[in-house]
Each structure stands twice: as structure tokens, then as C-alpha cells.
Design a binder for these strands. Structure first.
Length: 459
RNA sequence: GGCGACGUGGCGGAGUGGUUACGCAGCGGCCUGCAAAGCCGUUUACCCGGGUUCGAGUCCCGGCGUCGCCUCCA
């Protein structure tokens, strides 16, 4: 088991992962608010933390990966109202769509995907603790976190209190509820036009955004759990508030390590629903397939922003092709060629160093090049631990998808191939090339090998 | 303005104080009837200016530029 170092936003440095119990790691990542289909940007933390889980499992850890779904929120109310449907129905639909879209990534599901609306008792419990300890107060049916009561506030995002003004539920219709402009809502009283509400000691209402994650993470993973993650846009105020809520309410840290992924950019700006520069995850998957999309995601370091474009996906698709080409030459049952074990070590060492997927990917391609050389020299290299490396990057399917015909090419294609072979035997290469063009038109590429012609579906 | 991060070869993108990252694309070669795939080779890479050092893309200082957060946001 390697020492695994990860960048911790709270301390600003790389820190070695030190689980509460050796070998057991809890990960909580903030998931989407479901008021429309998720976009490529929303998929990044899903991919990053799903793959981080795989790596940790490879290293022998038992991982519990939690990603929540925020299914009650102002935007959901607004979108439901605009669509003329009950907000709970819209949230349910969009949650199902999120699951369906992310399923297509082929990375499995998080172990737990809690919903805010199903966690109200835990949320109310945490708010009660905060009120009890003097860190929260009721005002007009709302409950607010008293930011000035918590000295550590601001430590994650490293900003002085006086510089921030939070708008959360600063209802212009009801001014003066908050003691201080920085205070943020833990519980929001039911408002006209909102079609869902839950009972609470402060009357009918619903949870604020930040509190749900504090409550659900604690409920499922316990306090002081190993890794809390999410997009870098959540550092302030969302994660700052999560930290404050749990530390003020429980007197203990929420998580040991705070990881943040960089934003996906599109058309020179952060891809986001508010800006409207969105490409849907489903659309990207339709366009280039999950292999290319996953390759695209791991091609950049998780903390760096990455630009999204059709060209970037196309480039990722081509690099995926290089692995597919190799997989045709490998013995799926065989051990890796001699001497390539050092590559495997370097691969996982790179991941242990702040989950450096681009560096790991480079080592992977070193392996590919070396295996190709062995194959050129007449060996039949085995897959060996290439499968482990690819699995860790979510690309293991490339080994089982060598692009050969499922069930063989249709008779028409076979006939053309025979015709081409006959023409070649006769030395009539013009005719042979015509037949090759015909095959390409039908979606089949011919490659002549020492073992005879090989038919492959055109990529 | 405050906080955080970043500026690397045609493009994407890692990186250690001193030696080929890697991928995509281009060019030349090997292989092939020709291709494809693969292999080999290849195009003065490190924003600018100082400094430290025997030596800096890699550390320090100062610029310039870009991005994210500071309101909902993965």
C-alpha cells in the first residue's frame, strides 16, 4: 500500500492520506442540483472521485463513496413553476436523468447517493445542535447560522469576514431578519408558491443548501472522515459553510482532507448553467462515446481547468484508438511482457502523487509503445497489469472492445473482400483498390497482414 | 480591490535545480503492390525583466497576461 498524497485546500498543501481506521476511506463529493439535465462540467467530480475510489481500492483500501443529490432548492421551484409541474416530480425526473446520464460513463455508481429531501431528520438534528450551542438563531420561521459566533469561519477560503456578503435567502421582501449580512440560512420558512415543505421545530419549511451536506456526510460517514470533495467553485461559500456548521455544531471537524477539482471551460469561460454555455453530458457521450470522454477527463490534472471542445474530444478519441490498436495485438490471458513491471509501478506512483492522471497516462502510453515494439519483434505480449492500469483510469473496456466484428462481417462484405483478394492475386491492383473503397463505404477497413487481410469496422 | 491558481514545443498536457515526458497533428524513413496499423527519426519548448547558483522552465523579486471564487454554480 503506497503513501497517498493529496492536495488539501484547507491547509493549502499536499497531505498524506491518513484514514481514521487504516484501510478504510470515506469520500463525500457534492453532486448536482437537479433542475435540468447535467452538463459535462457536472460530470467532472463524478469522474474524478469515481476514479479516485478505484485507485484507492487498487491500493487496498475499503472505500465508501458518497455523492449527494440536491433535490430541493430555489432553482428547482422556479424550473418546475416554469414547466408547470410539481417540483418534486421535476426533481425526481432530473435525478433519474442524472443517474441515467452518469451510468453511461460506465464507472459504476457511488455507494450512497443521498437526497436532501430524505435527510430532513438529520438536517433538523444538526440545526438544533447549532441553535443549542448559540451558533444559530430563528428569525421569522427561518433559521440562520450566526457566522460571527464561529471564530474559524473563513479558514477554508482564506478570506476575512468583513469582505463577504452572503445573499443566501436574504429575502428582499423580508429585510432585517439576519443579525449580520454574512449569516446564511440553515432552514427556510415555507413561502408562497413553494409546493413542498417539511415540519420542523420552527414551523413548515425546507433545508438550506449548505446544511444538507454537513448532515448527510456526518450521518453516512461520521465526523472527521477522510476526503471531502467537489468543484473548486464550491470552496466558498458552500464548503466554508459546511465546515463551520459541523465544527460549531459538533465540536469536531467534518473531514480531514478537502479536495477540489478545476472547472471545465467552454468557449473561454467556465461551463455553467447560469452562464448558459453548456454542453450536456448526454450530448457529449452521443458525440464521442464514453471512452473518449473519460480519456479527455483524465488527460488533465484534476485540479487544473480543462477546456471542452469537439476538437479536444476528437483528440481524446484518437489517443483511445492507440490503445485499441494495441489491444488487438495482446494476449488477453497472458502476463505482461518482462521488464514492464517498472512501468506499472511508475503508473501507480504517479497516482499516489496527488492523483496525477496525466502523468499516469503518459506511463501507460510508454507501456503501449514498448508492447508494440515487442509485438513488432514477433512476441505476443500479454495484457498483464495493463488491465489494472486501464481499470484505474476507467478505460478497461478498451481491452474488450478491440473493434473486431461482432458475429463477423455480413456476407456482402465477405464477398467484396474475396473479390479484392482475387484481384490482388491477379495483380489487378486498380480493381483491388476499388473493392477496398467499396468496403470502406460499407463501413469496413481492410488491413493486409502477414496472416492475410483483416477486416475492421471503420472508426 | 481581496483570496486562490495558472502562463511549457503547431495543439493538448506532465515535470525534477543539471539527461527523450506523454498524447494529437505535420514532415522524412522502415514495412506494404499501394495503403492502414506499428516502429524509427524529426521540427532553436518552457510569458517578460532582474537575482541566487558552477548550472533554472524548475528557487527568489518585480512586471505583463489569463482563469476561478468573493451572488446561485461541479
Amino acid at each position: 500500500m503506497r503513501d497517498i498524497r493529496l492536495h488539501d485546500t484547507l491547509s493549502g498543501e499536499l497531505r498524506t492520506l491518513e484514514p481514521r481506521q487504516p484501510g478504510r476511506v470515506g469520500i463525500y463529493a457534492c453532486g448536482p442540483t437537479v433542475y435540468e439535465r447535467v452538463h459535462v462540467g457536472n460530470a467532472r467530480p463524478f469522474v474524478v472521485f469515481s476514479l479516485l475510489k478505484r485507485f484507492l481500492e487498487h491500493e487496498g483500501h475499503d472505500v465508501l463513496f458518497v455523492e449527494n443529490v440536491t433535490d430541493v432548492n430555489d432553482k428547482i421551484y422556479a424550473a418546475a413553476l416554469a414547466a408547470g409541474v410539481p417540483s418534486a416530480d421535476l426533481a425526481r425526473q432530473m435525478t433519474a436523468a442524472f443517474v441515467a446520464d452518469t451510468d453511461r460513463l460506465g464507472l459504476g455508481r457511488p455507494d450512497v447517493e443521498p437526497l436532501a429531501t430524505e435527510s430532513v431528520p438529520e438536517i433538523v438534528g444538526l440545526i438544533l445542535a447549532l441553535v443549542d450551542r448559540g451558533h444559530a438563531y430563528e428569525a421569522g420561521g427561518d433559521v440562520y447560522f450566526r457566522v460571527r459566533s464561529h471564530p474559524g469561519y473563513g479558514k477554508l477560503s482564506n478570506r476575512p469576514l468583513d469582505d463577504m456578503v452572503q445573499g443566501e435567502d436574504d429575502d428582499p421582501a423580508r429585510p432585517g431578519l439576519k443579525e449580520s449580512p454574512q449569516d446564511f440560512a440553515l432552514w427556510k420558512a415555507h413561502k408562497e408558491g413553494e409546493d413542498t415543505a417539511w415540519p420542523s421545530p420552527w414551523g413548515e419549511g425546507r433545508p438550506g443548501w449548505h446544511i444538507e451536506c454537513s448532515a448527510m456526510a456526518e450521518h453516512i460517514l461520521g465526523l472527521d472522515f477522510e476526503i471531502h470533495g467537489g468543484g473548486s467553485d464550491l470552496v466558498f461559500p458552500h464548503h466554508e459553510n459546511e465546515i463551520a456548521q459541523t465544527e460549531a455544531g459538533r465540536g469536531a471537524p467534518l473531514a480531514r482532507l478537502w479536495m477540489h477539482n478545476g472547472m471545465i471551460r467552454f468557449e473561454d469561460e467556465k461551463m455553467s448553467k447560469s452562464l448558459g454555455n453548456i454542453r450536456s453530458l448526454a450530448g457529449a457521450l452521443d458525440q464521442s462515446g464514453r471512452d473518449a470522454l473519460v480519456m479527455y477527463m483524465v488527460s488533465g490534472h484534476y485540479r487544473q481547468p480543462i477546456a471542452f471542445s469537439p476538437e479536444a474530444l476528437e483528440e481524446a478519441r484518437r489517443s483511445v484508438g492507440r490503445i485499441e490498436e494495441l489491444s488487438r495485438r495482446l494476449d488477453p490471458e497472458g502476463p505482461e511482457p518482462q521488464g514492464l513491471d517498472t512501468y506499472v509501478d511508475r503508473f501507480f506512483d504517479a497516482l499516489a502523487d496527488d492523483f496525477n492522471t496525466p502523468a499516469a497516462r503518459a506511463v501507460l502510453f510508454d507501456w503501449v509503445g514498448e508492447a508494440n515494439r515487442r509485438a513488432d519483434a514477433g512476441e505476443r505480449p500479454g495484457v498483464g497489469r495493463l488491465r489494472d492500469m486501464l481499470w484505474t483510469l476507467g478505460l478497461e473496456a478498451l481491452l474488450d472492445r478491440p473493434g473486431t466484428a461482432q458475429g463477423g462481417p455480413p456476407p456482402q462484405v465477405e464477398r467484396l473482400l474475396v473479390a479484392r483478394e482475387r484481384a490482388r492475386a491477379d495483380g489487378d491492383f486498380a480493381e483491388a483498390d476499388l473493392r477496398r473503397e467499396d468496403l470502406r463505404t460499407l463501413g469496413w477497413e481492410v488491413r493486409d497482414t502477414p496472416q492475410g487481410p483483416q477486416l475492421l469496422p471503420v472508426r
